[in-house]
Amino acid sequence: MVRSWASRAGARLGLAAVVVAVVAVPLALVVAPRAAIQGEPQRLMYAHVPAAWTAFAAFGCVALCSVAVLLRRRGPYDAVARAAAELGVAMTALAIAEGSVWGHSAWGVWWAWDPRLVSTALLLVSYVAYLALRSLPGDPERVHRRAAVAGLVFAVEVPVAHFSVLWWRTLHQPPTVLRPSLSPPIAPLMLLALLTSVAAFTLAGAWYVRRRVLQLGDRATSSGVVDHRGVAAGSARIIADPDSMTPASTTHEPTTAEETRA
């Protein structure tokens, strides 16, 4: 029952992402005015900026879930952190690739050793390492806690990447919307196209994370690594007081699949 509710909520989230994307694309490619100096290539910003925003939001999500894991909160926080990290890596790679295409047009080079570009590339490498760290063998509880520490450490790089354009002299332009003075120097229709694209990416990202968490949960329950609440079997062994281990404590709890059948 819980699962069918989750499926319906997920379907609505996915549908909302598609609807907003269908609105965002014509807004970005047709309705938004042509940039006076950059011309048409500026329209790539309506895909580049949302990708970077989604990556930063995903890495922020990894950090929050990492705190929950370290505080031993019950819930699928580790799975959410993993799914968000995957999303963040994909979006960072996309932002870098799109920025490179745009940079070749605007700057004449595919890559520059610029603080924003380097700090973003560092983010990408760090979270690829985070995902690699997660795949190392070991006790699930220890792997989760190790990943949580890494997720928190790497999160420091997110504000560095965002503020790099303000802290150092860069080729990359400073933020247009998320700037210290809350008066974005951008035409209203351009801002509308940008915010709609950001909303589409954010919704699609939330849909991916939610769906991926369900997928990871299913894999874990079928392999006996975690129960349906996302609690690692290994952690239960560590936390449980051996003296309190009675036959009653081994009572079988239904998995999500069993609940669904019921």
């Binding site: 048409e40 290539p41 690739a97 799109e98 295409v101 745009w102 047009s105 991926r212 369900l214």
Partner: peptide
């Protein structure tokens, strides 16, 4: 690359990445 080609390549990249992400979670029913 200039003009609309830059935009087309960028949006194509976005579509490929999102399609890959969607395929990851849709290939197996959760």
């Amino acid at each position: 690359m200039t003009g609309w080609t830059v935009v087309a390549v960028g949006y194509l990249l976005a579509m490929v990445v999102w399609a890959a992400l969607a395929w990851t979670v849709l290939r197996r029913r959760p």
